[in-house]
């Protein structure tokens, strides 16, 4: 087999393996979020975070993908996001927020590995995510 074909085969195998690894984490969380969505916890969360989400031009339940993304990763966030009906502007705001601050436990560990303070970087990323979320939410609010 030539190098190009071998490269494609190896890539495909890695893709399937990565998907399998991620799904083991994503699927249980997805199921839990669907249950939470229909439980009395959801209205409570919405009321609690509605004032804060307003600044990002997000509905109250926007907090659910944000928190999920913070502790897990982008894939779980998307799975969770798909259980709600968000507009394009809202999805973009959530995406920007989560893309800046996600997988904090895992990525702080990586930050530490290359010699940075894990705590400092976690704080830095949360603050940047809030700033970016405010900016994108504000722009989205003006356009939408």
């Amino acid at each position: 087999m030539n190098l190009f074909a071998a490269t494609i085969r190896d890539g495909a195998i890695k893709g399937v393996k990565t998907a399998a690894m991620l799904l083991k984490i994503v699927l249980p969380i997805y199921a839990a979020v669907v249950i939470i969505k229909y439980s009395p916890i959801m209205p409570f969360l919405q009321d609690l975070f509605f004032p804060a989400m307003k600044f990002f031009h997000l509905p109250g339940n926007g907090i659910v993908p944000l928190i999920t993304g913070f502790f897990t990763d982008e894939y779980t966030t998307i799975a969770v996001m798909s259980t709600f009906d968000f507009t394009t502007a809202e999805i973009t705001t959530i995406a920007m927020f989560v893309l800046v601050a996600h997988s904090i436990p895992v990525e702080s560990a990586i930050a530490q590995k290359i010699g940075m303070s894990a705590a400092k970087f976690a704080v830095f990323r949360i603050l940047s995510a809030i700033a970016v979320g405010l900016l994108v939410g504000w722009i989205g609010g003006m356009l939408g």
């Binding site: 890539g11 893709g15 399937v16």
Partner: peptide, 8 residues
Amino acid sequence: LIPLMIIV
């Protein structure tokens, strides 16, 4: 993930 990993 399959196309992505092929690109990577």
